[in-house]
C-alpha cells in the first residue's frame, strides 16, 4: 500500500486521528522541516479560531414558537394520513355499492358524474404535490 504524503497528514495529526506509526512519521518530518512546523502552527491557529466561533442563540421566544409550530404541525400530518386512508377506503366502498346497485342508468350517470367531478378536485391537488416533489429540498433526507 502506498504511503500518504506527510504534508497531507498534518491535518489529521492535529486532530489526533493518525495511527501511532503515522504520528511517528509526522513527528520526524516536523523535526526536520521548518516549513512543516510553520504549516502546523497555522493549522493550529485556524482550528482554534474555527472552534471559538460563537453564535448568537435564538431567543427563548423563538424556540418556544418553534415548539408550538411543531406541536401543531406534527399531529396535522398524522391527521392528513388518517384522512386520506379513510377517504380512499370510503370512496372504494361507495363505488362498489354504487356499481352493484340496481339504480336506473340515467340516474346512475348523473350521480356518478357529480361524484367523479368532486373526486377530481383533490386528485388535482395530489397531482400538483407529486409534480412539486422533485423540488422538495427535504426529499433526499435519510431517515
Amino acid at each position: 500500500m502506498s504511503e500518504k504524503p506527510i504534508e497531507s497528514m498534518l491535518s489529521a495529526y492535529l486532530d489526533g486521528e493518525l495511527t501511532q506509526a503515522e504520528q511517528q512519521r509526522v513527528r520526524i518530518h516536523l523535526e526536520n522541516s521548518d516549513a512543516a512546523r510553520e504549516k502546523l502552527r497555522q493549522l493550529q491557529t485556524l482550528k482554534k479560531a474555527t472552534s471559538e466561533l460563537a453564535f448568537l442563540p435564538p431567543s427563548d421566544d423563538r424556540m418556544d414558537e418553534l415548539e408550538q409550530r411543531l406541536s401543531v404541525k406534527a399531529p396535522r400530518r398524522v391527521g392528513w394520513v388518517l384522512f386520506v386512508i379513510g377517504a380512499v377506503a370510503g370512496v372504494l366502498y361507495s363505488g362498489y355499492l354504487f356499481v352493484t346497485s340496481d339504480m336506473h342508468w340515467l340516474r346512475k350517470s348523473i350521480v356518478g358524474s357529480i361524484h367523479v367531478g368532486l373526486l377530481l378536485l383533490p386528485a388535482s391537488v395530489a397531482r400538483q404535490r407529486i409534480l412539486e416533489l422533485p423540488h422538495d429540498r427535504y426529499r433526499g433526507v435519510k431517515r
Binding site: 435564538p58 423563538r62 418553534l66 409550530r69 411543531l70 404541525k73 406534527a74 400530518r77 427535504y138 433526507v141 431517515r143
Partner: peptide, 14 residues
C-alpha cells in the same frame, strides 16, 4: 430556523 423545524418534523414523522 426553518431547517431546524423541518428536521424535528421529520424526526417526529419517522
Amino acid at each position: 430556523m426553518d431547517i431546524t423545524q423541518e428536521a424535528f418534523l421529520r424526526i417526529h414523522k419517522h
